[in-house]
Design a protein around this nucleic acid. Structure first.
Lengths: 370, 370
DNA sequence: TTGTAGGCGTTATCAC
DNA sequence: GTGATAACGCCTACAA
């Protein structure tokens, strides 16, 4: 069996084996159309026979394309990350690109990390997931020509290509669901002010109430932190009130807080959904297993990841096409005028309401909707 | 502010700026002790002022070290992956290494992927997580000198450094817990035969019974597939039997099957733990939220990831030390005799039993253990 | 269409 | 201790 010590060979070896020059081998490898099909066939046969794979470092150094895309991400055990990364990885698996993963915890100097990443000039594009404080810096790099796509729920999308959901509409749907179940006193646990998505979800909640001719009651608005502890806290506050003042339903701005809410409800003997119906937001994997299972807005995280990478690869391709192959140092003075850079797209994917037991008693036959 | 267009500079530029040759800059960057401290200081100042980071591709091409370690992994939404990757990423964050992530789904030709990875000669070591069918091939590469660590529960650890847990002892503890709760008729749902860990867990179960002078009852042994569906299936089989023949407890070989078991139990009105106490294995994140919460063996996934990377980096360092810096083609004929390669370590981390409501009614005061 | 030659940025081997 | 200089493997004008 040939091809054992694969990799030790260089383009030069292949050239000798195929009886051509290394320039030709390079052209074949890069699908340069100017090469004679017959010759190309011969070269490819040798390449395959010996399982030759070009040394990527040499390729990049010589001005070739990287085939490496960077993913800047928070710790992968954040609830949404596994699904997002699944979309990313699945898409990339069918491409010639590989992932360089930069997980940033909370310790190190993030700005430094980012600089190192880019200065190494190893990646040809960057997917930034929940970049937190790095957002501003990323915008700057994007504007300097770095293909970049952002997945974020904290900053308002602006300045860079962005993939996410429509929080307002989604929250509207969540609230509408509770209204349709017959509730009129609907509480809300808000996310922290630093999250743009939290504000949008609150707006959607208010608008749904307005459209049902209900004035939001500020006594039914709670302020959470997007964590389980926040849900516990708000639940305690609520359950400590006189029972006659309780709402009959609550829309909670994310699932994690809902878990806390359900936990405290169970501890204190509050029946869900009989006493209070609950709707969350996100549909993390746990939400199907809570007691009772949580009705929530499903974010299509896998699709978000997939879509973001698709967009990023498109941007990289565009850039490669439009740029003079080499030494094309486009010096200062003019704003780049390419599609994606001039007018960064903002893609919003559809969410879906997932009805489970926390918002109503499930019955076998679907509700007739005339 | 200097250091804006960081990265555009080369070692040559720094050399000019510092008034030395690029050779000296390179030496300074690589902490070569032969350089004059004063000069070194001067160079470093320039490096920092301009935020210079070497072009990694050039470094590698010239025979330097990669600073890139490969992680071969299944889809990241597999239940154990987020925690493992957290350990990996956290550890690597404090090192000069970056992660190249190769997620392999079920579609593509895995062997090809692996060959490409290695032939690109981009990574200086590989962490293989649940490699499935690739295990054999990986052993071969390890034996040819690739620093490699395996995290796997399918094949028996052999031939490569390996990090995991002691399944037999852990299953023994799980079963012992049920025995200590007073159960004597304890069933077991086994994992599939293709998983070495499943066999070990079954052995641990049997041994615990033996040590309690109980003969395992083959009627109480069920065969699962490590998936939720398997748990559902076995639960259905069990609950269809005459109630007088039921066990009072069951040890299920992994949590996913336990979820299915709990689900069917709830559907059919079987009380957990009153009718049947349940203990799982893994402690995935969902297990704390099931109804009732699941007693289970906690695998220290994050520690496993951390430990594996620690081991891998040590191997890489060892290799770099022992090897002549360049052109040290150690040709065939002799087995490598370095520590880790001659005698690959097999590290087993401790598990813990997490007691929740599925195995007994929780009471406030801890059980006194004299 | 194909081959030749120069260069990408760094490391390592020499002399000095 | 320091500075030239030859690799490293590939890409791409340019010449043939």
């Amino acid at each position: 069996m040939p091809g054992e010590m694969q990799g030790r060979l260089t383009i030069q070896d292949i050239a000798r084996l195929a009886g051509v020059s290394k320039a030709t081998v390079s052209r074949v490898l890069n699908r340069n159309p100017s090469v004679d099909p017959v010759l190309g066939e011969r070269v490819m046969r040798v390449v395959q026979e010996y399982n030759f794979v070009p040394n990527i470092t040499a390729t990049v150094l010589a001005g070739g394309r990287t085939q490496l895309i960077g993913v800047l991400a928070p710790p992968l055990n954040w609830p949404a990350m596994p699904e997002i990364m699944r979309g990313v990885a699945e898409y990339l698996e069918d491409s010639p690109y590989e992932i360089v993963l930069y997980c940033i915890g909370n310790q190190r100097n993030h700005a430094d990390v980012l600089n190192r990443i880019l200065a190494m000039r190893m990646i040809s594009g960057l997917l930034a997931i929940f970049p937190g404080g790095l957002a501003r810096q990323l915008v700057a790099h994007f504007q300097q020509g770095l293909p970049l796509v952002m997945i974020d729920d904290q900053e308002e999308p602006a300045g860079t290509p962005w993939v996410g959901i429509d929080n307002l509409v989604s929250a509207y749907e969540a609230t509408k669901h509770l209204l349709e179940c017959g509730h009129t006193r609907i509480a809300h646990i808000q996310g922290p002010a630093s999250y743009h998505c939290a504000a949008e979800r609150y707006q959607g909640y208010c608008q749904a109430l307005h459209d049902a001719s209900i004035t939001p009651d500020s006594n039914l608005l709670f302020h959470g932190n997007f964590k389980q502890s926040g849900g516990c806290h708000c639940a305690s506050l609520l359950f400590a009130r006189d029972r006659s003042t309780w709402p009959t339903a609550i829309f909670i701005s994310n699932d994690e807080m809902a878990y806390g809410f359900l936990e405290v409800a169970q501890e204190q003997g509050v029946s869900i959904p009989e006493d209070i119906a609950v709707v969350g937001f996100d549909d993390y994997i746990i939400s199907a297993h809570t007691s009772p299972p949580l009705t929530t807005i499903r974010q299509p995280f896998t699709d978000i990841g997939r879509t973001a990478i698709d967009l990023l690869l498109t941007m990289i391709d565009r850039k490669n096409e439009k740029q003079p192959p080499k030494n094309g140092r486009q010096t200062s003075g003019g704003a780049p005028t390419q599609d994606y850079f001039a007018d960064p797209p903002c893609i919003q994917l559809a969410t879906t309401l997932v009805q489970r037991a926390s918002s109503r008693v499930l019955n076998q036959q679907p509700i007739s909707s005339p």
